[in-house]
Nucleic acid binder design. Structure first.
Length: 146
RNA sequence: GCGGACGGCCGGACGACCGCGGCAUGCGAGUGUCGAGGAAAGUCCGGGCUCCAGGGAGAAAUGGCGGCGGGUAACGCCCGCCCGGGGUAACCCGAGGGAAAGCGCCACAGAGAGGAGACCGCCGUCCCGGCGGCUCACGGACCGCGAGGUCCAUGGGAUGGCAUGGGACGGCAAGGGUGAAAGGGUGGGGUAAGAGCCCACCGCGCUGGCGGCAACGUCGGCGGCAUGGCAAGCCCCGCCAGGAGCAAGGCCAAAUAGGGAUCGCGCGGGGCUUGUCCCCAGGGCUUCUCCCGCCCGAGCGAUCCGGGUUGGCUGCUGGAAUCCGUCGGCAACGGCGGAUCGAGAGGAAUGGUCGUCGGCGGUUUUUUGCCGCCACAGGACCCGGCUUACAGGCCGUCCGCACCC
RNA sequence: GCGGGUAUGGUGUAGUGGUAGCGCCUCAGCUUCCCAAGCUGAUAGUGCGGGUUCGAUUCCCGCUACCCGCU
């Protein structure tokens, strides 16, 4: 089951971790630290849209489509112990055909959890990004959930 | 039929599968039920509600409003009417009090921009000229015997004349010209020329009658031009307004100190006639003043509460509600009766994939077919308004023009 | 939820109701062997829609965009 993310700190932490850009959405993912007190089998997801997406109707519609896509894909293919954040993009999130939007999420998930990609391990960012304050997940190599 | 004015309404429908939020029920799986708008928006006004401020009166400051009457809980909203402006009309628009309380501004142009002014111009008097007459003197020519007459030239004089030139002094403000605006307008009389100088009408001011609750209208009398415009410049007049906002506010639990509250005892300076005396007080309680009332002022004791943080409950939706009928009212609206309950979340619920129909656009000679698209926009304490956004469509009333009967 | 402010050439900014200025940038010319600098000149602007006024960047109303407070 999906837990909904609503604390600002969780969003900020996810924003400092893995990011992927897809035409229909921005994707962020972070493996939680054990010390955070959240049960490790939980999988959490957050949705957000900035004012650039549009007025309240446009933002709500983008978040609903992201929610539906997360319901279909993330509950099946997401990893326990991770936080995911899905961010709406102006125009595209609401206008993109649904199957394309769904494929965007699948693609981002695969890019995040592929073991041979450095970007899957935020522990050693090649671009010299400042290291994250919460270190424990840096040593864990993500693996596919069975 | 075409064009136009005004008012009101709808703003996709039905269905399938997988999902979402609240409530009820169930041990549970689940089941049942309800689930965004006309603007929910902007936050521009007005209220309810809650807390804060001791009560009353006045003032100041600040902000707002501004024809009159009505409606309303109230309003800057609505209705009706008046006045002014626009339109052939239906109808539309108007921050629509005061400019003789005061201050300020009116660029440029123009002579002059506010108790104004004289550039061109008009008129009078005088002076210097011009023209044509009159008259005198002298000269010449001609006619006549003569007295004399006629004509020409020069010079002088006086008075009057002119479609006449220039100047000085004075009168005038009609006309030209400048300007957004030139110190009432039109016409006539009058005059040297003119002018409210006089007269008529209009406008303006004062005043009386009548109609109207009133704004105002209308009829008459008087005055005789005095009062330019701007107050969405300062300002004056009248009216209105205490502050904060549901993250208001209330309750509970966890957690516990340096502060706070209540009660009891107690309390300033000066004067002498030493008294249960008199006088003066200080500070606080809405920016100030006044009146009333209250408290503090100095410590001690007792009792109670408790900062910050986190969570839960409540406020929370039945209300100036909506609909129908009826009565009063031109209307806004109000009275009465009946029926109905239609989101209450707490980072926030309506989505995805389709089907049929509807609408719009494109393609097509047309039909069919195919393709694309579905206005503005999402409750967060609740109401009444205003403003702004809005694909497409529906209904009603009225006006103008053309045609037919 | 409650309030406040700003909008002026491409850019940064002045501006008493009366022709909207200035610096940088851009362009052209001069200067130089060439460039830079310098000199001369030019282009280009009041966010939008109404209203008041003879006249609005200025005053008033309504929108739009951006920014900033408080809770």
């Amino acid at each position: 089951m999906l837990d909904i993310l609503n604390r600002r700190a969780d969003f900020l932490a996810a924003a400092r971790a893995v990011r992927h850009t897809r035409p229909g959405l921005l994707f962020q993912a972070r493996r939680r630290a054990e010390a955070e007190g959240v049960a490790p089998e939980r999988l959490r997801v957050g949705f957000t849209c900035s004012k650039k997406v549009g007025n309240a109707v446009a933002r709500n519609r983008a978040k609903r489509r992201l929610r539906e896509v997360a319901r279909l894909e993330l509950s099946a293919n997401g990893l326990a112990g991770w936080d995911y954040v899905l961010i709406g993009r102006p125009g595209a999130t609401a206008a993109r055909p649904f199957e394309d939007l769904r494929a965007d999420l699948v693609s981002a998930l695969r890019a995040t959890h592929r073991p041979d990609r450095p970007s899957a391990r935020p522990s050693d960012p090649p671009s010299g990004r400042p290291a994250e304050g919460t270190a424990p997940q840096n040593t864990v190599v993500p693996r596919r959930q069975s």
